[in-house]
Design a protein around this nucleic acid. Structure first.
Length: 476
RNA sequence: GGCGAGUUGGCGGAGUGGUGACGCAGCGGAUUGCAAAUCCGUGUACACGAGUUCGAUUCUCGUACUCGCCUCCA
């Protein structure tokens, strides 16, 4: 068995992944702050680490892998939204979590084994902060508790390649007067009566952002675990601060052994931002008619360590490729039942090459190439299993519908009457050698964005992505 | 200002110290009543300058440019 190799941000090297305990492989990924729909940038780490999760389950066994992804449900952005809408925080976070799971599910992302909410781990956070104070790594000041980076100076900044002194030199942080060092960060802060808060040894207040991951990972996984993932933007300060808190509390070599960061996503060559107006959610794309599988395919086609550009062109190409594969499998009668039979009889395995290339630091692009190779062989069951493994087919019963991928608009309209009409006109034309009528009919069908295939065997009408049924009116 | 990443053919995008991945588009052909689809064929790509080497797109150093993070947005 080939070993899994992963690039570790901590060591800046790609190395063989050796779990602390192969019977209990643990992966923690930073999840969303739940105040709004997930945008397409949020979805990239979800797909990346979902793919890794699938690979780990494949290699170590599903029951030997635990994946945790948190929900940050205490945050000033949430407070702001609550104040603006007059709704309760819990109402907002519950709704947003529901959206998130739906949208990520549409992308074929499996739900993690653990989905801790920050607000349910406040005691663990307080306990950890107290320990840090006792150990001299934190101090209370004016209702806040801050992490003292000077007490961890020789380690702080290692993950992101910075030093405390350099950072202070170029810092653009607001320096609160109660900070001993400008880089000290908040672990606990006071709340007013109208803000969410909990009683603590430092008064009524709420946690800072970073402490939740430290406390929840410790609670769920213990002091050491295997993989910690997230977007590159979180590397500093979030992950650096998590490390500082956890390692200062529990020991230098504790916490995550391997750190993985996915690069950022852009849209049509530009940074996605609200001000540029190119900011959109996964739900927006789904509503536009892109299947979740198409979105996932686009994500998988760029290696996670490289910036990815979301373009409409790529999505269209992905759609065309998937449609070919779906059609092939549809003609082979793959359904949930037949797939289940294959699984029951042990005939359901992703192709070895697909797994191999994923083991090489998650080379998802190459995995798609391997699938493409399979699609032109007779290894159809392996093609099918590979697609499911990569999260590109999540419901075999919808394969027929997916195969027509007019994605959004196509309603599964029956075109057989039109096919018959064309077939008849064609057989007449064959003998009269007058093809004017056939050509006219064909042109009209094509105008409605239907692919018209005529061969000796007959006529085949396939609606394309932008199929417009209205243009067919009056043809019959 | 600090830190980091990238620069591969028309486009996207892997990969490798030594025979031009792969996809899309294009071009030529087969096929077709014409098309579409399909099949076959087709491309002297690795930012620039030095260095290491028998040999570098691949390693090292430098230069240029692009992008990202450090700031509410992953």
């Amino acid at each position: 068995m080939t070993e899994i190799k992963l690039y570790n941000t901590k060591t800046r090297k790609k190395g063989v992944f050796t779990p602390l305990d192969a019977n209990n492989v643990r992966m923690y990924v930073c999840g969303p702050t739940v105040y709004d729909r997930a945008h397409i940038g949020n979805a990239r780490p979800v797909v990346v680490f979902d793919t890794l999760y699938r690979l780990l389950r494949h290699v170590y066994g599903a029951e030997h892998v635990t994946y945790a992804r948190n929900f940050t449900d205490v945050d000033d952005k949430i407070n702001t939204k609550a104040a603006e809408t007059g709704r309760s925080i819990r109402d907002i976070t519950d709704e947003t979590i529901g959206w998130y799971l739906d949208d990520m599910g549409a992308l074929g992302a499996m739900e993690p084994d653990e989905a801790p909410r920050a607000t349910e781990y406040i005691p663990q956070m307080i306990a950890m902060i107290e320990e840090l104070i006792l150990k001299g790594h934190a101090y209370a000041a004016e209702g806040h508790v801050l992490f003292a980076v000077d007490s961890w100076k020789e380690h702080y900044g290692k993950l992101s390649g910075r030093s405390v002194d350099d950072m202070i030199a170029g810092a653009r942080v607001e320096v609160a007067p109660y900070k001993r060092n400008p880089m000290d960060f908040v672990m606990w802060k006071p709340s007013t009566d109208d803000q969410p808060g909990w009683e603590s040894p430092w008064g009524y207040g709420r946690p800072g952002w970073h402490i939740e991951c430290s406390a929840m990972a410790r609670e769920l996984f213990g002091e050491r675990f295997d993989i910690h993932g997230g977007g590159l933007d979180l590397q500093f300060p979030h992950h650096e601060n998590e490390i500082a808190q956890s390692c200062a509390c529990c020991g230098e070599d504790t916490f995550a052994q391997v750190w993985m960061h996915n690069e950022m996503l852009q849209v049509e060559g530009k940074k996605m931002s609200k001000s540029l107006g190119n900011f959109f959610s996964v739900r927006d794309l789904l509503d536009q008619g892109y299947a979740g599988e198409v979105i996932r395919f686009v994500y998988l086609s760029t290696h996670y360590s490289k910036p990815m550009d979301w373009t409409d062109k790529k999505a269209k190409e992905a759609e065309a490729t998937l449609r070919d594969w779906y059609r092939l499998l549809h003609t082979m009668n793959y359904t949930n039942d037949t797939v289940q039979t294959l699984k029951d009889t042990g005939q359901w395995k992703p192709h070895e090459r697909v797994v191999e290339v994923l083991k090489n630091d998650l080379n998802t692009h190459q995995a798609l190439v391997e699938v493409r190779v399979l699609s032109s062989t007779d290894l159809i069951p392996e093609l099918a299993a590979s697609l499911e493994f990569l999260g590109l087919v999540n419901d075999w019963d919808s394969l027929g519908q997916m195969a027509s991928v007019g994605l959004g608009e196509y309603s599964g309209m029956d075109l057989s009457a039109f096919a018959e009409l064309l077939t008849d006109a064609r057989s007449v034309a064959m003998s009269t050698k007058n093809f004017a009528k056939v050509d006219e009919l064909k042109a009209k069908l094509q105008a409605a964005n239907i692919e018209v295939r005529m061969s000796k065997d007959g006529v085949e009408l396939i609606p394309k992505a932008d199929f417009d049924p209205e243009k067919l009116e009056g043809l019959l």
